[in-house]
Design a protein around this nucleic acid. Structure first.
Lengths: 208, 208
DNA sequence: ACAGTTACCAAACAATTGTTCGGATACTTG
DNA sequence: CAAGTATCCGAACAATTGTTTGGTAACTGT
């Protein structure tokens, strides 16, 4: 049932070198490849090995196969995105609920603009989970959920919403995601700066 | 400078059979492959040839290379999308400007929901045009422009907007696109029906 | 220092890919 | 019917891919 590392790895951490050191380097190298080569395809085992400076076979001791590698990379990058959003939130005065919401969104957009390859890989997949789980789970809904609590904090602070908080969360997420996707498929660099005021305008639209 | 067909083909239309008959069948077959195999990758010359029932070599008389084939397919599908949106618009009573706008958006969402593979291929590309043209051109901005005129018609009919028409157009497009992308990366079938009321709610948000 | 375990690598295998070349086929023109 | 031409296909080439196998070097505890 385990996804990637195979039991052998997690049994031997901190024995050789720092244990899972190479695993992290592989993920970093994969991220670097993804940054240079735009699309999620083209991310090849051999290419990652070449960037990291190791043999292709060495990757198979940390990831079962190519699919496990991209799964690991996606999870890694989602963790990074969540940390960035949380850090941006906590860097704002705790009393300014709307400012914290804006900071979260700005961090999201900055990540998407700075890492187009990662972003497309994280949000460009489809038809992966055959199980029709009733609650649509996944890292995306986690992000949306953090936005929901941010909206709820705004509402508790006295800023009235035009729609329920959960609805506002998916609306603003959808707006940010759509705006970023529009930027990515139309690479006019002069518009990269325009995405932040756009989502700000979006947020304004959701308060009375 | 010509993109795909090579001069030989367009010089001989309507000579053999119906001229560019096979070209259309190839595009249709490519679309079928794209519908079954989700992603834009995996759309292979040999796969298309197998589906159409021809030899892989036969494709190269209608398309210079694989890239030209996907370019042709993208253009083909954008034409189809534009026709669908226009037909939906014209099927509504000409006096109901908001209804016509809604019809355009519904047609857009229906296309995106029914053809996930096409949709991802059409909007999932990036870093293709190295020329930093000042006006960000492309089929997407054409779609947005039709939405802009639809919004302007609404404004002329007396429905006041909360933002300028061009701004409203990109906002509602971004909303629809983001909602569809969210659906695609979270394939919960019970939500496919939820995208239309979502964009309706979006439209409501843009009028006073 | 010695045995045991682990991380890593060089090499090769099988499969698939885009693409090209020469010939066979079917249609049009005279 | 003959000549000409455009269309399509079988076969092959070179390149790249994911993956496996057996071996080598490094580090562990005793």
């Amino acid at each position: 049932m385990s996804d990637e590392g195979t039991a052998a790895v997690q049994r031997t951490r901190n024995r050789w070198g720092e244990g899972e050191r190479l695993r992290g380097e592989i993920l970093d190298g994969a991220g670097r490849v993804l940054s240079e080569l735009g699309g999620g395809d083209g991310l090849t085992i051999r290419g990652v090995a070449r960037v990291v400076g190791i043999a292709p076979a060495s990757i198979y001791q940390h990831f079962a196969d190519r699919e496990a590698l991209v799964r690991g990379l996606i999870a890694h990058e989602f963790d990074r995105l969540r940390d960035l959003m949380r850090a941006a939130d906590e860097a704002v005065d705790a009393g300014d609920a709307v400012g914290r919401l804006r900071a979260r969104l700005h961090a999201y957009c900055a990540f998407a603009v700075d890492n187009p390859g990662h972003y497309r890989l994280m949000l460009g997949n489809g038809a992966e989970r055959p199980a029709p789980d009733r609650p649509p789970a996944g890292p995306l809904v986690d992000v949306i959920d953090t936005l929901r609590v941010a909206f709820e904090r705004c509402a508790e602070a006295g800023h009235a919403l035009r729609v329920p908080a959960d609805r506002a969360a998916v609306m603003v997420f959808v707006g940010a995601h759509g705006r970023v996707a529009l930027l990515h498929s139309n690479p006019g660099e002069q518009h990269a700066r325009a995405v932040t005021p756009f989502v700000d305008e979006f947020v304004d639209l959701l308060f009375v």
